[in-house]
Design a protein around this nucleic acid. Structure first.
Length: 547
RNA sequence: GCGCCCGUAGCUCAGGUGGAUAGAGCAACAGCCUUCUAAGCUGUGGGUCCCAGGUUCGAAUCCUGGCGGGCGCGCCA
């Protein structure tokens, strides 16, 4: 219905000599300003230096609207045109909710676009911590939003299993193994001191036998390397799986090296004349593409910088046919964006190809105090610690409550509370209560069908609920476009507020207004239950029928 | 020093491609339990949208300059 009105306003605009003019058609905050409002007249008046209210008159004269669509219009304030939709339109919108069911909110705006969302990508050097958890929730929800808007999405995890960090990890594990065997060995400089490596060392000895610890250092470290990668990867995968995140593709940095893609990336840049030699190193001229300084590819000692495999990896994603890649990165990597963007521009990729969603730090708070230590790792709060304590649903919801680029305080006490103060609880409770209505009615929600009789919904809360429900598809689209899942949590909380108020003030089963109202309210409850469930599903959170 | 992000109620934050009287939750205060889950609802108080200019009919939103905070600026990853 919004689309039809927008189209008609666009037609009127061009008829008034303002082809392609941009204007806003939106739901006003204040219900007294109608169901939809446009600033078109004010925009036109600005171009013509005319009186906006008079221009609004001309727009209304030109406007051809079916009375079945719009019931009433008015010119208000400085020149807004407000529209009241015909009540039937709401009934039609309601019918669409029931027809679409678990698909309500899906659209095809992204049809034909292949998108790769890469997230978490934690180094396999230790357990996932809460920051990774936030990245996991965010990346998964962005991917989900893109799916809901018709994109073909791949969820991808990049394993940094090459390089110096892994060497140090292997040495650190080996030191722990030797230590257990009674041959104390220092953990190398820059190595890993976490308690988890002691557990891992015990695991290795149990698996490989006590003689493993007696191997010469060189062989012991070489084998430790493979073992620790396997162990840590398995732990991360288990935690992610329990957290409800599944990846379509696991990419390995080592595999990119082994396949020759890293060297090939350098060749490609060289052939394009984008490199130069200086001070014994090979440089990439990223300044020609917006970076603030040129970057080293091959150091003077002959080894490659981290940038090179990363370039190769992005080329690889491009070659796999993705139209867009979205990298979910910790906010501390934001300085890395311009150079990657420059590299991809240098390769001739579309500026739209590469996008980054930044995730800010998570501060875990308990009893008003920041929690810094984890029992397991002795270093940080692990994702596992967190979801075991508060549950996956609460963890995901809290991670998605705020814009990714904003720092987040995660209040553990609040996340566990079984009251309305806890937003997850509040939203899920809304769904459970709606389910309870059908239990009381002893009817399955799906069995309630037919057209919604708006005349049978006399309470103001009936109308408010209905109006809130029909905005859901717009919210999903906007959240997907902006890559901002928190728009869904905000909406769900608002919807839950309306649901609880409606539930409290009106009665469906045995409605005092009569059987017609009972039927209408059951239809409304069915629709509200669908929308709450769909919103929660996008975020990877369950919609319980009882609590 | 340069770059990016941020500054909105006592606290935590929405809103930001300009639009009508700036919102929510928590906290505070005052009410509501023979009810489909009170595991909830209703109301009240609370604001220099960091500051100063500018653009505009109109600025929390855009521009410029400050102030304050976070992060980043390596031949680390």
């Amino acid at each position: 219905m919004t689309d039809a009105l927008r189209a008609e306003l666009t037609r009127v605009a061009s008829r008034l000599g303002a082809d392609g003019v941009e204007f806003v058609l939106e739901r006003p905050r204040d219900a007294g300003h109608g169901d939809l409002a446009t600033n078109l007249a004010m925009v036109l008046a600005k171009r013509e230096r005319a009186n906006p209210r008079q221009t609004a008159q001309r727009v209304l004269q030109e406007l051809q609207l079916s009375p079945e669509l719009v019931e009433r219009t008015e010119i208000a304030g400085p020149g807004f045109i407000n529209f009241w939709l015909a009540r039937d339109e709401l009934a039609t919108a309601h019918r669409l909710i029931l027809e679409a069911g678990s698909h309500y909110g899906r659209s095809t705006v992204g049809a034909g676009l292949r998108v790769n969302v890469e997230f978490v990508s934690a180094n396999p050097t230790g357990p996932l911590h809460v920051g990774h958890g936030r990245g996991a929730a965010l990346g998964d929800a962005i991917a989900s939003l893109l799916e809901w808007t018709g994109h073909a999405v791949a969820r991808e995890f990049y394993i940094n299993d090459a390089g110096v960090q892994i060497d140090r990890l292997a040495q650190s594990l080996w030191a722990r193994v030797r230590e257990l065997a009674g041959h104390p060995l220092a953990i190398p400089e820059g190595g890993y001191h976490g308690e988890y490596l002691k557990e891992n060392a015990r695991e290795v000895l149990a698996r490989e036998g006590a003689t493993f610890a007696e191997l010469p250092d060189e062989e012991g470290i070489r084998r430790s390397r493979a073992l620790i990668l396997e162990i840590q990867r398995a732990e991360q995968d288990r935690d992610l799986a329990e957290f409800g995140v599944r990846f379509d593709v696991m990419s390995s940095e080592q595999a990119i090296y082994d396949s020759g893609r890293v060297e090939h990336a350098i060749d490609l840049l060289r052939q394009r004349g984008l490199t130069f030699e200086a001070e014994g190193a090979l440089w990439l001229r990223t300044t020609a593409f917006g970076d603030d300084k040129d970057r080293v590819l091959r150091k003077s000692d002959g080894s490659l910088t981290y940038l090179v495999p990363d370039i190769a990896y992005h080329i690889d994603k491009h070659d796999r046919g993705f139209d867009r890649v979205i990298d979910v990165w910790g906010a501390d990597h934001h300085g890395y964006i311009p150079r990657m963007r420059a590299v991809l521009a240098a390769l001739g990729y579309s500026p739209e190809f590469f996008d980054v969603a930044l995730v800010q730090l998570v501060k875990v708070v308990r009893g008003g105090q920041e929690v810094k230590m984890s029992k397991r790792s002795g270093e940080f709060v692990t994702l596992r610690d967190l979801y075991e304590e508060v549950g996956v649903d609460a963890a995901r919801y809290f991670f998605l409550m705020r814009k990714g680029a904003s720092p987040l305080d995660f209040d553990v006490d609040l996340a566990k509370r079984q009251t309305d103060e806890n937003p997850v609880f509040y939203v899920q409770m809304g769904h459970a209560r709606l389910s309870g209505i059908f239990r009381t009615a002893e009817r399955a929600p799906e069995s309630i069908s037919g057209a919604l009789d708006l005349q049978a919904l006399p309470a103001p809360q009936d109308g408010e609920l209905l109006k809130k429900l029909v905005t859901f598809p717009e919210i999903v689209e906007k959240a997907a476009r902006e890559r901002e899942p928190h728009r869904i949590t905000v909406y769900l909380h608002e919807l839950a507020t309306v649901v609880h108020a409606w539930y409290h003030h009106t009665r469906a089963v045995g409605a005092p207004e009569g059987a017609a109202t009972e039927q209408a309210r059951l239809l409304l409850a069915r629709a509200a239950r669908i929308v709450l469930a769909n919103g929660l599903t996008i975020l990877g959170i369950t919609a319980p029928d009882r609590m």
